[in-house]
Design a protein around this nucleic acid. Structure first.
Lengths: 160, 160
DNA sequence: GATCATTTTGGGTTGGTTACCCACATCACA
DNA sequence: TGTGATGTGGGTAACCAACCCAAAATGATC
């Protein structure tokens, strides 16, 4: 893994009329790999995340290789519909992007609806330890209200 | 199976006034077999898929073989009406098409209503590993929101 | 508090791509 | 053979993302 320190921080940003937003430089650096690549991922409605492309790809590649192997070995004949479903999700789930000027993100087509933001709208940018999340403010607030009570026990659990 | 790499990618396209849409060249190639044939299939309301004709035929044959096996094994005695229904569905389910110039697809009569698009309307084009799917945007967003959380378990299952 | 450095925002330009449009081919049917 | 509906081909204008740069805002330093 490439990042030594956990990514943290929470801030509000507005999305440009061209669907752009700027990240703080440290965050931008944290999600950019040595080739300058980043991946944007759909997490849940109202939330997308950013990862170093290399890290993200590594997580997937092994699994995909196995699946491809199984396909060519004829071991998926009974499970085409599941393969199809996975492929479908795989396609939408993530997209390679590149930060302009080392810090500006263009939210691509397809992620805009998922995030449910319009030009000029606001989003929350949240460090999530191993990645950065971009939240629709409404969904973020919801999450906060439901999950904040769980913070203390979770923190104790993970740090204990 | 003919494709070595899983088909992925997601993009939005508009249907032109004559019910045509343009595929990206790589996608077009991925669903065209050595004879230049493609098959369009009705998946579910709001979604049709495109296959290399050869692959689709093979899938169909395999499925039919299994059913015939069951029939001759006497395991369909109670289910004739279902078999009959299947036969009926098979005939409307798919249609041979051919990609025109500029890798353009003409959505044929009968598939238009199924997709529920009108000329000038938009669709999502989604790589689904072994085929390409064309979605009505509304249905697509719905599916996305409900099924995205299932990605991880499905991925683990198929790659395990 | 003034100056400088850094970050953020806004917008101009450009090149590649798409979608809109029209012209022609084909077919069915009168 | 004419007419209208449908499929096919391709030109072109409009759009958008990538790449700029400049102004504004913010923060740091003396």
């Amino acid at each position: 893994m490439a990042t030594e320190t956990l990514i943290t921080g929470e801030l509000k940003r507005t999305i440009d009329d061209r669907y752009r937003l700027t990240l703080p430089p440290e965050m931008a650096k944290a999600v950019t790999d040595e080739n300058g690549k980043t991946v944007m991922v759909k997490e849940r409605a109202g939330c997308v995340s950013l990862w170093r492309a290399a890290d993200w790809q590594k997580r997937l590649d092994d699994g995909i290789a196995i699946i491809q192997q199984k396909i060519s070995a004829g071991r998926m004949e009974e499970r085409w519909s599941e393969v199809q479903r996975l492929g479908r999700l795989l396609s939408t789930r993530s997209r390679d992007i590149q930060l302009a000027n080392r810090s500006r993100v263009l939210v691509p087509e397809g992620f805009r609806e998922f995030l449910n933001v319009q030009p000029g709208g606001e989003v929350m940018i949240v460090g999530a330890a191993i990645c950065i999340e971009i939240w629709n403010p409404t969904n973020w607030l919801e999450l906060l209200q439901t999950e904040m009570p769980e913070f203390s026990p979770l923190f104790k659990d993970l740090s204990g």
